[in-house]
Structures are given as C-alpha cells and as structure tokens.
Amino acid sequence: MKNQLRQLLALSVLAGTAFAAPLSFDFKDPKGVNNVQFKLDAPLESITGTGTGISGQVSFDPAKPGATTGRIELAAKSLTVGNPMMGEHLQGGQWLDTAKHPVIAFELVSLANVRTQGGVTTADATGKLSLKGVSKEIKVPVSFTHLPDKLGARVNDPKVKGDLLVIRANFEVNRSDYGINAGKNTDKVAENIQLSLSIAGSAPKA
C-alpha cells in the first residue's frame, strides 16, 4: 500500500512537471523600479537618460526557458534627461517624435544559446524592436532570473503569493536605422545608442 502511494505521488509530481503551464508575468510596475537607461556619446559629455514607463507580458516556463515569448513596451514620453531643453529635443519631431510614436516595443521571437544555472537563464534573444514607426529584427543578449515565491516580499505583503521574473539586457542600436535624425548631427551626438534594461515582472498565484 505504501509503495502504491509513493508511486502515485511520484507520478503526480512527474505529471505536474511535464504539463506545468508557463507562467505569465506582468511587467506593469507600480513601484517605478523597472527602468531602461540610455547613453549616447557626445563631445562635451555623454547624454544619459532614463525611462520608467514599462509594461508588457512575458510567458516564461522555468522548465522550458527556451520557449519564452512576450512583448515589452516603453512609453516614449517617460524618457527623461537632466537638461530640460535636451529633453524637449529628445521628444520632438526630429528625434523620437513621441506625439506620433508614443510606444517603443520589443517583441520576442525566439531564444538561442539558452543556458540555465542556479535560477538564472542567459540566452540570445531575437526579436522585433519597434521604434519611431520602424520595426527591425535585432539580437539581444538577455538574462532571466526566476525568483519563485518572492512576489509577497516585493509588495510587502506575505499573504500575496506568486513568482517574480527579472529580465536584464544590455545592447546597442543605431539611431539611423530607426530614422532618428538619420545621418544628422553625428558630430554632436553619436549614432549608437547604448541601452540597459532592468525589469521585473510578477505572476501572482491564486
């Protein structure tokens, strides 16, 4: 009888693992921690800024991280720099034209070179980056850190159950590829934009 119970328990665990549904993580962040930082080289000093208007959904299965799919969006108007005049130019028609193109989005198409170690999965993500009305496929080195049962700690409420998924990525894009003042002011502002993304999503459990 004991053996049968053990076998049943082992089977149910196996079945649970084999058929575990991927978790859906929501990246809307009321705490304002999720952020993207950008940097462009310029002669006097580098132009650096931040954006915090992040939202999106990512479907992540800890047992099959290579099957991750999702879409992350950034409200372009949330991008800010320290100098107000520079900020106005950044939002204006020549640069990001945020009035016409309010959303910057990355749609994950596939993951390659997936490696998982100690809850951290690294991979090369291929996806479509949509910026100022132009969509281009790019490859981005990315890391996923799965934090099981950490949602309660994050919202300071132990009654809330759920997992967290932290995504980090550092990559570069060429502003000319997206029609951002293409080929102009290259003596004042570099063509390459360095981007650093650090975001956390939550998947509450019922």
Binding site: K31, V33, N34, L147, K150, L164, V166
Partner: peptide, 8 residues
C-alpha cells in the same frame, strides 16, 4: 531594489 536586485 532589495528583492529583485534591480538598480533603479
């Protein structure tokens, strides 16, 4: 952020 380790 202490829980996620994200610098913001």
């Amino acid at each position: 952020d202490e829980v996620t380790g994200i610098d913001y």
